[in-house]
């Protein structure tokens, strides 16, 4: 075997090893969570509120809470993010303003999530007097998701060939029509990809909702978006840090983790299916 072939042989096997280690971590991680949590899960677990200071019962309010927090925050961040990306991509003037906005977005993307929590508490809970509520938490999560959605959307818009824009304008379309009828439809699959990732992030975050939306323990469902709510990640946190009966609380925490994981995965799967369907119709 020549030296060069030997080198490439070693290289490939090194890559295989890295892959194996990564896969091993993932498998071990999933195995641990599922083996410990799966036994707890039952229809009852999903549909009843917690009982006896969280040592028994289900997680229904937390499930509903996380659902509403996620939907509301993405509902806010998605249009806002796309519109920002469109402005940056298609209008974006003057240049100095664009630069400032870009810097802000990138800085925002690097902020630790607990800071979002504090910021959300200061702005939405205290200043705007939303109190600890779904809306305050969703807004905080939206701020967290915004840079991700903007960046993904901008990349998606940038990847639309300039030929399409030229063709549209040359056919007598206005700039607005070109954006609405050509730019956005073409970029949509990639925009959705970015949004999928942010949905996962938003549903799983604990720190931003700790001070803004989540309640430690509630036996009932929220009455509206100005009501506080339980949430899955925070519920796990609460189960593991508070309370006195670890032997009955830890299995519930694992069960909750499984549910959270499944929730995030199914949201992603849905979005991937949507994206796949759109892409099939619009390939270029």
């Amino acid at each position: 075997m020549t030296y060069r072939r030997l080198k490439s042989h070693i290289g490939i096997n090194l890559l295989r090893l890295c892959l194996a280690v990564t896969a091993l971590f993932l498998i071990a991680f999933l195995f641990r969570i599922f083996s410990k949590g799966l036994s707890v899960i039952s229809w009852q677990f999903l549909t009843t509120p917690p009982k006896n200071s969280m040592t028994a019962g289900g997680i229904y309010p937390a499930l509903v809470g996380t659902f509403w927090l996620t939907v509301t925050s993405i509902g806010i961040a998605f249009p806002l993010g796309i519109m920002t990306a469109i402005w940056l991509n298609a209008y974006g003037k003057p240049a100095w303003l664009v630069r400032i906005i870009r810097i802000s977005i990138n800085t925002l993307a690097g902020v630790p999530s607990i800071i979002y929590g504090l910021f959300g508490m200061a702005l939405f809970v205290n200043m705007l007097r939303f109190d600890v509520s779904i809306i305050a938490g969703a807004l905080t999560l939206a701020v967290l998701a915004l840079p991700m959605i903007i960046n993904a959307s901008e990349e998606a818009l940038k990847s639309v060939p300039v030929d399409f824009r030229d063709a549209s304008l040359a056919l007598g379309a206005t700039k607005r029509q070109t954006i609405m009828r050509v730019l956005i439809p073409t970029a949509l699959p990639n925009i959705l990809t970015g949004t999928i990732i942010s949905i996962g992030r938003v549903a799983g975050e604990t720190a931003p909702i700790m001070f803004t939306a989540a309640t430690f323990y509630s036996r009932r469902l929220p009455n509206g978006i100005f009501d506080e709510v339980m949430a899955l990640p925070y519920h796990i946190y609460a189960l593991m840090t508070e309370g006195t009966k670890a032997e009955s609380q830890v299995p519930i925490a694992y069960g909750t983790a499984v549910v959270l994981l499944m929730l995030v995965l199914s949201i992603s799967a849905t979005a991937i299916i949507i994206r796949y369907r759109i892409r099939k119709k619009r390939k270029w």
């Binding site: 399409f164 063709a167 549209s168 056919l171 007598g172 206005t174 439809p185 073409t186 619009r282």
Partner: peptide
């Protein structure tokens, strides 16, 4: 244009585009 640049839409909608925007 130099490079063929139909929109990623149906054949019909490509040709109808100019009339649709009007």
């Amino acid at each position: 244009f130099q490079k063929p640049n139909p929109f990623p839409k149906s054949i019909f909608n490509n040709v109808a585009f100019g009339m649709a925007v009007q």
